[in-house]
Design a protein around this nucleic acid. Sequence first.
DNA 1: CGTGTTTAAGTCAATATGACCTTTAGGGGT
DNA 2: ACCCCTAAAGGTCATATTGACTTAAACACG
Lengths: 240, 240
Amino acid sequence: MDDWLKDSVEVEASWVTVDLAIFTIRDDRLMVLLIERGVEPFLGRPALPGGYVQKNETLRDGALRELWEEAGIDGGRLHLEQLGAYGDPQRDPRGRVVTIAYLALGPDLPAPVGGTDARRAYWASVSQLMAEAKGLAFDHLAILSDALEEVRRKIEYTAAATAFCGESFTLSELRTVYEVIWGEGLDPSNFRRKVLNTVGFVESTGERWHPPTGRPAGLYRRGSAWLLSPPLLRGTGNGA
Amino acid sequence: MDDWLKDSVEVEASWVTVDLAIFTIRDDRLMVLLIERGVEPFLGRPALPGGYVQKNETLRDGALRELWEEAGIDGGRLHLEQLGAYGDPQRDPRGRVVTIAYLALGPDLPAPVGGTDARRAYWASVSQLMAEAKGLAFDHLAILSDALEEVRRKIEYTAAATAFCGESFTLSELRTVYEVIWGEGLDPSNFRRKVLNTVGFVESTGERWHPPTGRPAGLYRRGSAWLLSPPLLRGTGNGA
DNA sequence: CGTGTTTAAGTCAATATGACCTTTAGGGGT
DNA sequence: ACCCCTAAAGGTCATATTGACTTAAACACG
């Protein structure tokens, strides 16, 4: 890089990182992937997985690489989107580090292995973390909080909820995703009607799944639509 | 800044900038503020206003400073929110420059003056720009495109449309904002009913405004709610 | 062949929506 | 004063959607 502007005292080179808020649903709870930091600063403290963006990769590629390196997760199987940039000058004790936060949603993922900069990686309950509201390195609690709010809104007007399910899923599974993330129960019958009436949300695979007990459930896969119209609105009450 | 990781060939210092997509409505058209670049690269080409983030400011403060320096606009009077980060390694010929794009919405603003790095600043018609789809420096057309889509969606489920109006406004003014941004006509009567039934969207000032001709219109100001429930949905058709 | 359990489908009153139409409150002209 | 034009404000009504609830269907198991 040339040294244009090197003489300006106001502008200074920065380091750019990506951090990942990776969500999944396990045991009917919303979980986020955390690592235990193996390097300074915040050595030993829980943090979102992430790391430096390298020389010739896009931000998204950096996120995918960190996903693999730190959590052992193949990004091809989950939904990844940018959440936003966090650049408070005080957020990193080492100096000016701007981080680009990414949001990842995936089906029940394998217990991850620790990566290079991480002693270990593990799934943590989001509701528990938010209740404690402490412990995370850097401004990762704020990032996590923003990510959670984004997920809650995203599943209202996009098909993002399907990212938490496998290739094919029952409508009950999908409904559980909403119930877990919104923290409220939904009427199964009305939920079914809404989802099935929203064109392109899901499409039937023709197959059916036999639960341990009860009537077999039809299986669906994600439809062609990402934006839902009309959206599934919470709050106004979708049922009991 | 220390030299941790200086020996890693993969990681390299970056420059971080902010760019602004500043929208307003003039003459019933959606306009965006552009500058004519006064420095290399892309000297003389139109671009979104923006510049380097300085040493001790937050990203948002940087955006507000650039807003003032390059466009002479006081950020206190408009809505400012982060759009996202753009970090393709090829996006800037000088090297790795990650930009944080901000979205600003304001009422009909004064004709701006050129700033330090800009020969001049001017309002450009968004629909015209998107139709031509060329000319902008860097990846600013992509940023503008994302910003436009964000605005279109944002006014659906937030009170963002009020940011285009002054302190107080008539419902016709507000409706025009929607019509201009969505590019479709709305039924005045149904629009009024919807807006007035959405709690916290607007509240009456008690005053009224006398149009050049016709019955005087009631004046409203922004209500306490930012998120609209239910949202104002387009597409499904809010009228003619 | 009942029973328990879960999915699937139906009912219905209350509400919201989209497409209209009517009334009201000005201003300007004659 | 009166009429006419315009835009706001308010009303009507058939249709669609919603929320709460009920009923029917399809298995597994004993």
